[in-house]
């Protein structure tokens, strides 16, 4: 595993949260740099973030086009080697379309674009995003999406629950997500996707600093030189 500590933040045409993610990570002392989606070399990074926005205009389906970008091939290799990968909002949609996380994100139940702050409960510490946050911790995090209604097959859901891969749940489900799921991890815990925006909850001045412990976990995983083997695998 690489010992690079810089975080690469992927930027597609239509991404719009990349600067927020860089600012939040730098606030934690973690160097971060924006990478254009056509870059197929991500070798200088110790962690990767797919930020929020509307990659490729969300045409066809959110994430459907973005997953074919050269940077996504490199991201897949990185993830398969155990590298820490985080997909936020549109980034979560991209990771499900790419098959790096199970399931899909549909239109919100109620057909409303939701832009508000919700309470989420950490459901598992078995991921690079939640390793440092005890299960049961309630966090106030902004959500900002039209397609955040998580769904997956009954088999996938049983597997997610059984393996402690559901890392974050809504306390008051805003979008109809199966199992109140706000965020999930892959089997090895090094790839995480979530609809809420931890980077927008990075200062009390912005209404909440509750995203910082999540991003700190991610930064810690990178400092350890990876995510999969080091993240606590104790399901809670």
């Amino acid at each position: 595993m690489t010992h690079e500590t810089t975080v690469g933040v992927l930027c597609f045409p239509g991404s719009n949260c990349e600067h927020d993610v860089v600012a939040a990570l730098e606030g934690l002392g973690a160097p971060a740099r924006i990478v254009w989606h056509s870059d197929s070399d991500l070798s200088g990074f110790g962690g990767l973030v797919v930020p929020g926005g509307f990659a490729h205009g969300d045409y066809l389906r959110p994430g459907a086009i973005a997953r074919f970008s050269p940077a996504m091939d490199a991201l897949r290799d990185f993830a398969e080697r155990g590298g820490p990968v985080l997909g936020i909002c549109n980034g979560f949609q991209v990771l499900t379309e790419a098959g790096l996380l199970p399931g899909a994100l549909m239109r919100n139940a109620g057909m409303r674009f939701i832009c508000t702050t919700v309470e989420c409960e950490v459901a598992s510490s078995s991921s690079v995003l939640t390793a440092a946050v005890p299960a049961g911790t309630v966090l106030r995090l902004p959500v900002n999406h039209y397609e955040g209604n998580y769904t997956c097959s009954a088999g996938d859901l049983a597997e997610l629950e059984q393996n402690g891969q559901v890392v974050l749940r809504y306390r008051d489900n805003p979008n109809g997500s199966t199992g109140d799921i706000a965020g999930i991890a892959n089997r090895t815990g090094n790839v995480v996707g979530l609809m809420p925006h931890p980077e927008r909850a990075s200062s009390a001045l912005l209404g909440s600093a509750d995203g910082l412990p999540l991003l700190q976990s991610f930064v810690d995983a990178i400092a350890r030189g990876g995510g999969a083997s080091q993240a606590s695998r104790v399901a809670s």
Partner: peptide
């Protein structure tokens, strides 16, 4: 068996 919020709204 997959929910269809668009259809429900219509």
């Amino acid at each position: 068996g997959i929910a269809n919020p668009e259809g429900l709204t219509i």
